[in-house]
Design a protein around this nucleic acid. Sequence first.
DNA 1: TAATTTAGCTAACACGTATTAGCAACACGA
DNA 2: TCGTGTTGCTAATACGTGTTAGCTAAATTA
Lengths: 345, 345
Amino acid sequence: MSKRATAAEVAELAGVSRTTVSFVLNNVVGMRISEETRQRVLDAAIKLDYHPDATARRMVTGQTKMIGFVIRQSPDQAFADHFLPQVLHGMSKAVSAQGFHLLLEVIPPENHTGVYMKLINERHVDGIVLSGPRSDDIELRRAYEEGANIVMLGQLPGEKIPFADVNNVGGAQLATQHLLGLGHTRIGMITNAPLAYTASADRLAGYRLALEEAGLIYDESLVRLGNFTMESGVKAMHELLALKERPSAVFVASDTVALGALQAAQLAGLKVPQDLAVCGFDDIPLAQYVDPALTTVQLPAFGLGWAAAEMLIRMISKDKVKNPYIMLNTDLIIRNSCGARLAPK
Amino acid sequence: MSKRATAAEVAELAGVSRTTVSFVLNNVVGMRISEETRQRVLDAAIKLDYHPDATARRMVTGQTKMIGFVIRQSPDQAFADHFLPQVLHGMSKAVSAQGFHLLLEVIPPENHTGVYMKLINERHVDGIVLSGPRSDDIELRRAYEEGANIVMLGQLPGEKIPFADVNNVGGAQLATQHLLGLGHTRIGMITNAPLAYTASADRLAGYRLALEEAGLIYDESLVRLGNFTMESGVKAMHELLALKERPSAVFVASDTVALGALQAAQLAGLKVPQDLAVCGFDDIPLAQYVDPALTTVQLPAFGLGWAAAEMLIRMISKDKVKNPYIMLNTDLIIRNSCGARLAPK
DNA sequence: TAATTTAGCTAACACGTATTAGCAACACGA
DNA sequence: TCGTGTTGCTAATACGTGTTAGCTAAATTA
C-alpha cells in the first residue's frame, strides 16, 4: 500500500502552508485565496491522490458523522425477520443523504447492556437507533438522561426517550373496520403475542376501538393470544371454531400466526373467505403467495428506518425536533382472504 | 451531556502521569506498576466514568478496527433478498468476535464507484467486503493493486481479488445427482439468470457435469434460461413441457423461478412430483411452504458472511491467509417436489 | 506623506491517545 | 566506593486535521 499523502505534503508540493490547503479543499468562506494559488493546491492534491483522513477530522471536529444501529434481539430472530432489511434500507438512505455513515451492531439480549453503550461512551458514534429496547434497561435510561442521542425503534411505555413506531392501534382498527365494512358483526381476534408486548396490547386495543365505534360490544370470549408462531395460530383458531357461536371473521394480528390460523380453518373444513374471513398483520412476503392470498396490514418498515435515522441526525445536529415521538400509519392490503373480492353479502 | 473525562483527568485524580494511566488501563505487559498505584488509577477511572476515546485511539494506532460492508446493488433488490440478513448475521458475528465493528454502506449501481472507495481512501475502515462486484469496476481493481484490503462476496472471473463464494457448480451437481439417483434420465434445466452471471453459468456447468459423470449426454434442447423472476419460470417450463419428448424432472437453479415453473406444470395438469420432479436452488423461506414443498439447494449464507469477514480481518492483521479464495459448499434440502419421499420407481 | 484598510497568506494550538526513551531512587555484588 | 541492575514511574513525541489569531505587503484613504 503506497504511503498516504497528507495535507502537509500537498502544501509542500503546492508551495503554500497547510492552512491554505485546508482552506482551499474545504472551500472555507471568508478566506481570501487567489485563484492562482487555489489552482496550485487543487493540482497538487490530485497529483498526490490526497484524501483527508476521516479519523483526524473526527478528532478535531468532535463529530464522528456516524450513527449506530443497535439490534438488541437474538441475532437468529433479528435476521430471520423480513422486517429488518427494509428498516435498514430506510436508515441507509436517510443516513447517506446527510453525509453520515451507519454502524451496525447486534447485541444478543443475554449480553450485558454495557456492550452497546460503549458505542456512545467511547465515541464510536454520535448517536444510536435502538431496536428492541427492553424496559429493564437501566443503562439506556441513564444514558438518555445524561444527554446521549438515542432514538428507539418501538416504544417503551412510560419512557420519555424519543422513538419512532408503527401505529399499531390504527392498523388494527383499519383491519377490523374493513371486516366490519364487509358486514361481519361477530369478529374474533388472535393476538400476535402475549399482551406484555406493547405492540400486541396496542393491536388488541385497536380491534376493540373499531368494534365499539361500530356500536358493537367487545366480547373477550372471542379473543385468543398468539405467541409469534404458526402453531399458536393453529391452536387459537381451533378454540375459536369450537365456540358454540363461532365468529364469521377473525383478525389475526400477525401474518405468521395467521398462517397457522388459516391452516386450522381449512383443516376444519371451512373455506376461506367464503365460510370464514381472515385478516392478518405485517404483510410478510409470504402473505401474497399463500392460498388464499392474505389480506393484511402493511407496516411502513422503510419509512420507520428512515424516520428514526432522520430524527436522530437532527438531534445530533442540535436542530429542533418538534415532536420526538413519531407514529407511522399502516396500509391495508386487500387480497383474497377477507372476502372483499367476492360478491358482497 | 456531562463533559467527558480524559485520561489526563484520571491521571490528575490518581496523582500519577497520563502515561501511567495508559499503562494500567491497557494492561501493558513489561511495565512495572505497583499494586497500590494500579488500584488508585482504576478507582479514579471508575469515579470519573472514564472511557477511552475511540477516535484518538484510531489516530495513534492507525487502525480503525472497522470493516465496511458495501452493497453494490440497487437497494430495493438488495434488501428484498432474504439472503442479505443471514450474510449480515455471519459478518456481525465474525466481526464482533475480533473486536471490530461493521460499517454498512449501500451504493446503488448507478452511483459512481468512487463513493465507496472513499471508505478506504479516507480511512473510515480498514478494509471492505464487497457484495455484488461488477466486472467494469476499474477503481476496485486499482484499489486492490494498491494493496487495499478487499474481499468480494461472489467472484469476478479472471480477477485475483480475494473472494468468498458459494460452490455453485457443486450445488447444481448435488441437485442433479439427486434427480439422477431417483431414476430420472431425461432431466431438464432452467437457469436462474442469463449466463453472463457467473453464478448462472456455474450452475449450468454443475448440471452438465453431473449428467456426464452419470454417462448421459448433455442435451441443450432441455435447457432454458430464467431471469430471476417467476414469470420467466412459467415461460421456460411451458416450453419444456411442449417438447415432444418432455423431461421427467427439471432442475431450476432458483427457487423464485421454480415457483413459476411449478405453477406452469400444475396448470398443464401435471402433478408434482408424481408426473414431474422439480428441484430448486437457494432455499428461500417460501420454499418450505409452497405445495408441494420444494426440494432445493441451501446456500450457506451465514457461513459466507462469516468467512468473508473473518478472512478480511486476517488480511488486515497481516496474518497469513493460506487461501484467499473461499468456496463454501451447499446442502441439499429434500422435501416433496422431487419425489424422493414417494415410493421408488 | 502618513495612516488606515485590505488581500493573501501562515504560525500555532487543540483534539486524546499509544508508545519510546529515559530518569531517579534504591538494592546488590564486588 | 563504584559499577550494575532493577523497580516504578514520567517527559516528550507523533498521529493529521480544523481553526483562530495574526502577520506582511500592497492598496487605499486622509
